[in-house]
Design a protein around this nucleic acid. Structure first.
Length: 425
DNA sequence: TCTGGGGTCCTAGGACCC
DNA sequence: TCTGGGGTCCTAGGACCC
């Protein structure tokens, strides 16, 4: 029998901030998305005063006055680094670990000589807390989907003390399924939950009673797999070696809308450079590129337009100037004046390792010439040492109107020497 | 005034082939 | 008077995840 644990960091971004600023402990704290847009992480206190996930920041300002809500800008360098620390601790607890997201990790316990799983969970919680400062919850089940569900209940119910083991207590599974709204099941989103509601399916327990044919028809193969997993048949296995990405994207909402081509061009130049850096860091080249820009969908009173253009990169490449040129050419060909653009981005597709690029008889091997590759390596090296954006192509002014807002970002405590916290005597 | 960013997988439908 | 059927490949879009 398979045994999966899901370890999930509690309110991860907020917890990272609290490690370096303990004064935030006990207060309602949220971390905002890029551009200070909306709430993406909430402390328990923030949830208690009714801050919904994804709520736009401007609707929360009144809570700053009335309840002392603290709103922090996103500090992704800090969260990424803290995540690595947590994951490296978790890897010591089981032979197989799958980093599922920045704050979640599956462990495979099959065959491990653990006689008290609950005690083992508590040991994980204590160790991660002591070594990284981050609180975590643990759920255990015979499938990944049940482990997810157990984890959610461990977080919600104080009497579990942060860990719920549904493997040693199979008689608890039915009750756990009954306590889980179908929309909170891993793999059941808003649309599918809606379809279930119409059918009278309200909980995970209702879902496992439903007819396979109906599930397949309304929620596809994915929905059926989810149901199988809830019934106890393991469909998903541990994926310890993540495969290479197939696409990557760099996009941003603008701080302020812009209508001039020049501004959007500058932004696209930056996004293309970042996207190229990302794939070089992973040792990949891109075979195609898509560039897009669109207006503010939350302003139906204004004319709406969505610009998009696709181009092949042949031969596949990761060279910044080449990728910028291709993106700008696409941008120009699809450009239309007279709109207030709110967001733009560059997507690199068909990513492959250079050695896997199919070659024809006449084209040179990809990334042939030594010069461009050495140049890119030098650029990446400088940016790694001195900070992203130190050298680059067509660097736009720091105060361009489209630049992101981030009014309340905490220091990069763990990834920049200048931001290192100072201990006081 | 102010609403994120970055991924994956599946499916339906069109083009094309025999 | 009458317009097949089935396979494959590709793409766009939709659903989901964090």
């Amino acid at each position: 029998m398979a045994v999966y644990a899901l370890v999930d960091c509690n309110n991860f971004y907020v917890s990272c901030e609290r490690v370096f600023n303990p004064a935030l402990e006990g207060k309602p704290v949220i971390v905002l998305s890029n551009n200070d847009g909306c709430a993406v992480a909430r402390s328990a206190e923030a949830k208690a005063i009714g801050v919904p996930m994804g709520e736009p920041a401007f609707k929360l300002r009144h809570l700053v006055e009335s309840h002392g809500l603290v709103m922090l800008s996103s500090n992704s360098a800090l969260y990424g680094d803290m995540s690595e620390r947590v994951m490296s601790v978790l890897a010591t607890f089981a032979p197989g670990a799958e980093v599922y997201s920045i704050d979640e990790c599956f462990l495979d316990l099959a065959g491990m000589p653990v006689d008290d799983l609950t005690a083992w969970c508590q040991q994980i919680r204590a160790t991660v807390r002591r070594w990284t400062g981050i609180p975590v919850s643990v759920g255990i089940g015979t499938t990944k989907t049940i482990a997810k569900l157990a984890n959610r209940l461990a977080k919600k119910s104080p009497k579990t003390n942060g860990a719920l083991d549904l493997v040693s207590h199979p008689e608890w599974v039915a009750a756990a399924l009954k306590r889980t709204p179908v929309g909170d099941v891993w793999g059941i989103g808003r649309q599918y939950a809606g379809h279930c509601g119409v059918k009278g399916i309200r909980t995970a327990f209702d879902l496992i009673q439903a007819e396979d044919g109906w599930i397949r028809k309304t929620m596809g193969a994915v929905g059926l797999r989810t149901t199988m997993e809830l019934r106890g048949t393991a469909v998903h296995t541990l994926d310890t070696m993540p495969s290479d990405k197939h696409t990557t994207c760099c996009s941003r909402s603008f701080g302020e809308t812009v209508s001039e081509f020049g501004h959007v061009r500058d932004a696209v130049t930056l996004f293309a450079s970042r996207a190229a850096e990302k794939i070089r860091a992973e040792g990949l080249v891109a075979g195609a590129l898509q560039v897009f820009a669109y207006t503010d969908r939350f302003r139906p009173d204004q004319p709406q337009f969505s610009l998009t253009s696709m181009a092949r990169l042949s031969p596949p490449t990761s060279s910044t100037p080449h990728i910028i040129r291709t993106a700008l050419r696409g941008m120009e060909s699809a450009w239309r004046d007279g709109y207030e653009y709110k967001k733009a981005g560059v997507i690199l597709l068909d990513l492959v390792r250079p050695e896997d690029v199919p070659r024809d008889l006449f084209s040179p091997p990809p990334e042939a010439g030594v010069k461009p590759r050495a140049l890119m390596a030098a650029v990446d090296g400088i940016n790694n040492r001195l900070g992203s954006g130190s050298v680059g192509y067509g660097l736009a002014p720091k105060d361009a109107p489209w630049r992101m807002h981030c009014g309340n970002r905490t220091p990069s405590y763990t990834t920049k020497w200048d931001d290192l916290p100072v201990a006081k005597a």
